[in-house]
Nucleic acid binder design. Structure first.
Lengths: 121, 121
DNA sequence: AAAATGGTGAAGCATACACTTGACTGTAGG
DNA sequence: CCTACAGTCAAGTGTATGCTTCACCATTTT
């Protein structure tokens, strides 16, 4: 779709790829260089670096180049954003269920003339 | 990549699309029919249904057909899985930082002959 | 019954994506 | 200096994705 997505979109898109998740998982255990990340993945270094770029743009990974080696580590910001988005949805959804429960509990079958529940209209 | 991804992959991939996130956001406020979801999105009904299929396969949305209308609602399982994966990464990563802090605190500069930190080798 | 509504299925299309390869650049070491 | 290493750049390739359109089916509504 759009390469110019909002931040949260970049995060989810980045995590949607198995290889990139594998990279994040590896980096959760500690920093590593690009070529070291490539080893167990069975793909070319160039491909790994492309993934790293995407992960970096999603604030999921931070990389720093010292000498000729680029060292990568996890960057909490991206995961934080994803967690927040999920938490927000969950809050909204639970709040709605609570309201619904309240209505059903407080008012026993009120003379409801509507043909559909209001949340469908 | 692979269309036959593990569950967590399907979840993140599903949430990587702005339109699908919009659908989940809408459904967080309450159930809705497919055509009702399509209205504000500015795309065809067919496209929306395709998105719904993906969301359903990712356990992010549940749909039920009554009469000729398919009613959709959020399904917590998908969000739960995503939240769990994130939490797991975060735990691992924090645990590692703690260990590192412990090492630095307990042992003041020990005669370290290595040229690189062990986690890079 | 006829028309409208809500949805399904399949084909087609343009773009995005994950990779590869090959040519190059900069940094270490022998 | 010269070779090896770690990474970068730029094409190029096959497949997946998001979307459309059109034909078609099943339920309402009039």
């Amino acid at each position: 779709m759009d390469t110019n997505q909002p931040a949260i979109g970049r995060v989810f898109h980045a995590l949607g790829d198995a290889t990139r998740r594998a990279i994040v998982e590896k980096l959760s255990e500690g920093p590593a260089s690009a070529s070291r990340l490539a080893e167990p993945l069975g793909i070319s270094l160039a491909a790994v670096v492309q993934h790293l770029q995407i992960l970096e743009e999603a604030s999921l990974v931070r990389t720093e180049k010292l000498g000729r080696v680029r060292t990568c580590s996890v960057h909490p910001a991206g995961l934080q954003m994803a967690a927040q988005w999920i938490a927000d949805r969950r809050t909204l959804w639970e709040r709605r269920l609570d309201r619904l429960a309240d209505l059903l509990a407080e008012s026993p079958p009120p003379e409801d003339e509507t043909h559909e529940p209001e949340w469908l209209g």
